[in-house]
Nucleic acid binder design. Structure first.
Lengths: 204, 204
DNA sequence: CTATGTGAATTTATTCACAGCA
DNA sequence: TGCTGTGAATAAATTCACATAG
């Protein structure tokens, strides 16, 4: 294996691969070929082999990949080998959905704090997470939580972003349909649901 | 202007551009330069000009783009110039969030049907949409609704997909963390929230 | 003089095709 | 023989640089 920088597009695909391999592993398979994984995920085998080739020789020609080893290695690359805590801001419909979402733990992710401004919600517990007053976002620094999830209404997005950045958050998942402005060292991934839905008619 | 195929990546950016131009237009500006739009959206001006160049000469050198014309034209390309009806399946936390989402109408999109299997939910109204029994998905064909949104739990995703396809749905927004299998003529866009969150630790 | 539109250059990603190993 | 790993070929997207138009 030759060392090379892992392309951004490969990084984007890794979580999907991880999901697929975890599933196949749970089915009791100790090995998986690039073809099998590709069929399961709806991709093609050469893409998978190329992607895997960026970070090591894991496969056995004629056999395939050791699922356990592969899971460990992908987790390591994505830094999912240690548990990360995330803080949710905005416990409305979308925020509640995120809190209740069942599929984070397999990636070593846990939402361990939630904030809202609504006095009715503050103090309540959802999925074992107590909702705190949004003014307490600053406490994230002490609690060593450096991932934030923004699920507040559009007009509160800017202030929420600023509060998270001030609290030392280094990565943000943003559900607001807007460009949030952060220092360069902070990574933002935006999921704009309306934008993806708006793209569908084009393909009709 | 020279005719060329619009690249897929350009199509993906168009809804964002549309959002930005709509905002700037609502502020009372009749013109916008590629630089202004780029600053607002957090991108760069040459990307915007290149993207726009694929579908016409809209700009006036020295001035910029006419916002009204640009909005109309982008809507036309994305086929958002006519109102599209979408059907939501699964009115849990996430489904409710999607139903309550305020940002669809500016794209000419309306969720006009909702389905669930829970008898407690069936018959209730959320955001003026009555929740119907999931067995009635087949009625979408008659109602000329050809966009589906899947917000059901993972184990119900396959059956829901099949029901939507059978009902003549031609485009699907899928929130389930799985590869749903559809005929080639059906377009699927998957939003896997856990996958995007799982990518964040990598950048820490 | 300002901002568009676009060829050309560059970078990045995908696909192919096959050598080489179990 | 079956499947990996990877150079090489191809395709696609981004970035630049500048001629051109108002």
């Amino acid at each position: 294996m030759r060392f090379r920088k892992i392309p951004e597009e490969t990084i984007k695909r890794l979580p999907t691969y991880l999901r697929g391999i975890l599933f196949i592993s749970q089915q009791g398979h100790h090995n998986v070929s690039s073809r099998e994984l590709a069929d399961y995920l709806g991709t093609n085998s050469w893409q998978i082999r190329k992607d895997f080739s960026y970070f090591g020789d894991f496969g056995t020609p004629g056999v395939g990949y050791d699922t356990k080893k592969l899971i460990q290695h992908i987790k390591k690359i994505l830094k999912l080998d240690i548990v990360h805590k995330a803080a949710l801001v905005g416990v409305g419909n979308l925020g509640s959905a995120v809190l209740a979402y069942q599929h984070f733990d397999m990636y070593g992710l846990a939402i361990s704090a939630a904030f809202d401004t609504d006095p009715v919600k503050i103090g309540k517990k959802i999925n074992n997470v107590r909702i705190e007053d949004a003014s307490k976002i600053s406490s994230l620094k002490k609690r060593k939580i450096n991932i934030g999830i923004i699920a507040v209404p559009l007009d509160a997005a800017k202030d929420t972003t600023d509060a998270l950045v001030k609290a030392g958050v280094k990565a943000i998942l943003n559900f607001s349909p807007c460009n949030i402005i952060v220092p360069k060292k902070v990574k933002v991934i935006t999921i704009d649901i309306a934008m993806d839905l708006a793209r569908l008619p084009y393909y009709l």
